[in-house]
């Protein structure tokens, strides 16, 4: 038993260190003076706010469409269930620059969909819409899969009982299925938001400008070197750590209540 614990702890610890060491090194090697001036740099602040906001829009819009899809995948057996499931997982597998090119071909000005949206004033190239779309495309599997697992963990007989007690299908969904799986959906949404913030490949193809934080970091690295790219990365990492720790803590607090 003791050896078992040592081996498991050791292997887990190594993995955690692989993640932590580069981040800690980056944070502590940043020049405090440059870090301070970077925090006050309006371009950096704008870029980080844009990143957080675009990822949030992507997540919220995917909740609207992704939760019903997750419910259908969890509850219904229809021809092509596994194909739909495979399609949902696809964005995780394909290179994100390829995803960006695919999105550009559909939502760019050359294709009817892009043209149609531009008629109502929505353009996806070089806009916040485009950034959100690219973020949503590559990160939606995190939300859909977490929500689907959440619905799968709810016994379908609870919904049946609710129906016999007088609930309509909508009431059974909201009062039972959603009420019991919201924590999984929230967890998936947090993961999706986080993945959206980190997105680079798909966004750079569809919307280089306005610049989100990952593109700003890359741009500064290319033009000014590591010294000026690193503080932006450190600020983004610390901010994300703060936000996601708070969200995780809040969702756990709710669970314990």
């Amino acid at each position: 038993m003791k050896n078992f614990r040592i081996v498991i702890s050791g292997l887990s610890g190594i993995l955690v260190l692989i993640i932590v060491i580069p981040l800690v090194r980056m944070v502590f090697s940043a020049d405090p003076g440059v870090l301070r001036s970077t925090i006050n740099d309006p371009e950096v602040v704008q870029s980080i706010l844009l990143t957080l906001r675009a990822a949030l829009w992507a997540t919220l819009s995917c909740i609207l469409f992704g939760v019903p899809l997750a419910y259908a995948l969890a509850r219904w057996r229809f021809p092509g269930t596994s194909i739909v499931q495979g399609i949902v997982d696809l964005p995780v597998m394909i290179p994100h620059t390829a995803a960006g090119i695919a999105l550009l071909m559909v939502y760019g000005r050359e294709f009817f969909l892009g043209k149609t949206f531009s008629l109502v004033g929505i353009s996806f190239t070089g806009t916040e819409f485009g950034i959100s779309l690219a973020m949503a495309f590559v990160s939606l599997p995190f939300l859909v899969n977490a929500a689907r697992d959440g619905f799968l963990s709810v016994d379908p007989r609870l919904e049946r009982v609710a129906r016999t007690l007088g609930a309509s299908p909508w009431q059974a969904f909201f009062k039972v299925s959603l009420a019991l799986s919201w924590r999984s959906i929230l967890s998936g949404a947090i993961m999706m938001w986080a993945r959206g913030i980190a997105e680079f490949g798909a966004v750079i193809v569809l919307a280089y400008h306005p610049m989100i934080a990952p593109i700003l970091i890359w741009e500064r690295l290319e033009n000014y070197g590591l010294k000026y790219a690193r503080p932006v990365a450190v600020i983004l990492i610390l901010l994300c750590l703060l936000i996601f720790s708070a969200l995780r803590w809040l969702s756990r607090q709710k669970k314990e209540v």
Binding site: D155, R157, L158, R160, A162, R163, T164, L165, V176, L180
Partner: peptide, 16 residues
């Protein structure tokens, strides 16, 4: 089901 006015109790009770 909601219009049949029947009650059901399952083996594992299915309490919410």
């Amino acid at each position: 089901p909601e219009k049949r006015h029947l009650g059901i109790v399952y083996q594992d009770y299915a309490l919410f």
